[in-house]
């Protein structure tokens, strides 16, 4: 049994006029099937409006399915009795770093989750220390979040989730508002948590470079999973990705172009080294 199991998941946003009559139905998730095993690093790719954020909010029980089921660590998200257990087990990091930090001091923000869970004071401090250390933000514990860079703020947000001791973290486009350095910092922190603490990671993004090291990749479009596989398999389908408003890393794109020009180059090249080796064989 996976830690996140989606079966035939449907979510519809219904807009109503002033009298309560249905004005329009927008299908955000359209019979989505997806399965994540504990300890995996999963990436969900998709353009803006593909339904990936709606899906993320379901895993955290912030939204409930219109149809179908979603099981998180053995608990059904539709069951209201489990909402807080689910939120504790599957923590969520959002896109905008400013709008998810509640306190004016870093360590107090990290303590917010455990406080809500009713963790005894002494243990809160232990958890805060551990989680800030795990994302490399311990020395900033007394700082105001306003003085931090975007990447640092996102790492504080991740620590805030870690302090709730989740089994799984969902990151909803955590790097979309960051500069290249911030992106690297956040990804590094997330990979470290996955490897060292065994936390299951579900990374939602539209940056292709970020999924290269994932264990498995899902591509979403119009509320459905349209492609899935390991990163190499996904990246070998350059044309299909472009149809879904995505692109591939520059080296993969170049390899694809060269192949289209008639060179015998294998599909799914990810690194410069691989391309150079393939080119060397041609001579």
């Amino acid at each position: 049994m996976g830690i996140v199991e989606a079966k035939n998941l449907v979510h519809e946003y219904i807009t109503r006029d002033e009298e309560g009559n249905v004005e329009g139905i927008q299908v955000a998730l359209d019979h989505l099937d997806l399965s994540v095993k504990p300890g995996q690093f999963i990436a969900v790719l998709g353009h803006n409006g593909s339904g990936k954020s709606t899906f993320a909010k379901h895993i955290n029980a912030l939204l409930t399915p219109t149809e179908g089921t979603l099981i998180v660590d053995g608990l059904d998200v539709s069951d209201e009795n489990h909402v807080y257990d689910i939120r504790q087990r599957a923590g969520m990091v959002f896109q905008n770093p400013d709008n998810q930090i509640i306190a004016s001091v870093v360590q107090e923000d990290v303590g917010f989750g455990p406080e809500n869970l009713g963790v005894p004071t002494e243990q809160i401090w232990e958890r805060v220390e551990q989680s800030l250390k795990s994302v490399g933000m311990w020395k900033y514990r007394e700082h105001s979040p306003n003085k931090l860079s975007g990447g640092q703020k996102q790492r504080v947000a991740i620590a805030g989730v870690m302090a709730m001791e989740p089994k799984c973290i969902i990151l909803d486009e955590p790097t979309a508002m960051l500069d290249p350095d911030g992106r690297k910092e956040v990804l590094h922190a997330v990979h470290k948590l996955n490897k060292e603490k065994g936390v299951t990671i579900i990374l939602i993004t539209h940056y292709m470079e970020e999924v290269v090291d994932a264990d498995y990749v899902y591509v979403m479009d119009q509320g459905k999973v349209v492609m899935e596989g390991n990163p190499r398999g996904i990246f070998s389908q350059v044309d299909a990705l472009q149809e879904h408003r995505l692109d591939v890393p520059q080296i993969t794109a170049l390899a694809h172009e060269l192949k289209n020009s008639g060179l015998p180059i294998p599909d799914g090249i990810l690194t410069r080294q691989e391309l150079i080796e393939a080119l060397a064989k041609i001579k």
Binding site: K57, N60, L62, Y84, R87, Q88, G91, M92, F94, N96, N99, Q100, I102, F112, G113, N116, L117, G160, V161, M164
Partner: peptide, 10 residues
């Protein structure tokens, strides 16, 4: 956004 983030942290 903040309300959602607070809810997500129980």
């Amino acid at each position: 956004d903040l309300a959602l983030a607070m809810e997500a942290r129980c």
